[in-house]
Amino acid sequence: MTTLFTARGHIRLHRNDLPDGLDFGPMVAIDTETMGLDPRRDRLCLVQLSAGDGHAHCVQIVPPSLGGRGADCPNLKRLLTDPKVVKLFHFARFDVAILKAALDITCAPVKCTKVAAKLVRTFTDRHGLKDLCRELLGVDISKQQQTSDWGAAELSPEQLTYAASDVLHLHALWAKLEGLLIREGRLELAESCFAFLPARGALDLLGYVEPDIFHH
């Protein structure tokens, strides 16, 4: 295990799986890093998680061909499929698809801050995590490492810091967006959208991006 210490908490890197006994509470923020943006083709490399307490845990998924255990990560899978723990994402559609493709699990229940933002922030087209953190939380996060090589055997401190930043603020962001959903009377609609996201990811894995089966 590798540990980085930051001004507000720590970032811990685990190879292959989460350690035994970790408790992320009733809602865990999750993000993934991959070799590309096609969940049918590109390899899952890293899963980041945070309980919203300023700390982050990153699980490096290493395939057997490179000396790792691949999808053999029972603790991570148990958490991702636990019906009592809400999984909070930004752009859950991609993450649940890549987790299904790589680990053969259905990640549920889920919430998505991007979907929430699009439902209530219709006055803008800026729904990226960087924009939302800056505008709703007053926090600037760096995207400098976004396109780095996540399949490398050794991840740099800069990569881990970037990866952690994608989950450390999601709880606070969701609290803001949930308030807006309630204010605008769209929370129930949002929850229906969230419940559909695992199915949307499964459709993506089957190639139903184009044509979209919901299009005319």
Rank of each mutant, 00 (worst) to 15 (best):
A71Y: 10
R15Q: 12
R126T: 10
D95R: 05
A116R: 07
I213V: 15
D125T: 05
G52E: 01
K118L: 06
H55I: 00
D20K: 01
A202W: 06
E184H: 15
G36D: 12
G207F: 14
F196E: 09
Q146E: 10
T161L: 05
L13S: 08
D104C: 04
A51W: 04
P83W: 15
R69S: 11
P39S: 05
R134W: 09
Y208D: 13
I30W: 04
F89P: 05
P39T: 11
G151C: 02
A164C: 06
W150M: 00
A71P: 14
N75F: 06
C112T: 09
L170H: 07
L206P: 00
L170E: 02
H216S: 12
L180W: 06
D31V: 01
L119K: 06
L80F: 11
R183N: 12
R200M: 11
L119H: 07
V167H: 08
C45Q: 03
I30T: 13
A51T: 00
V96P: 00
H90D: 12
L160P: 08
G179S: 11
R183P: 00
G36P: 07
D38C: 05
Q146D: 08
L66T: 02
V139D: 01
V139R: 09
T34D: 00
A117N: 02
H90L: 14
H171K: 08
P39A: 12
L80V: 13
F91W: 13
G138D: 04
Q144F: 04
L160K: 08
F194V: 02
G185Y: 15
C193F: 15
G21K: 11
A97N: 10
L4R: 04
L79K: 06
D72K: 07
L132T: 05
V115C: 06
G52M: 00
L187F: 15
P74N: 08
G201R: 01
L103P: 07
K77S: 13
E33Y: 02
F214A: 13
T122W: 12
G207N: 08
Q146N: 02
V47N: 00
G179H: 13
Q159Y: 06
L173G: 03
H10V: 12
L132C: 03
R8Y: 14
I213P: 14
F194A: 02
I11E: 01
Y162K: 04
E154I: 11
D104M: 03
G179E: 15
I182C: 12
K143W: 05
F194I: 08
R183A: 15
V167E: 03
F196R: 02
I213K: 06
A199I: 15
R186K: 13
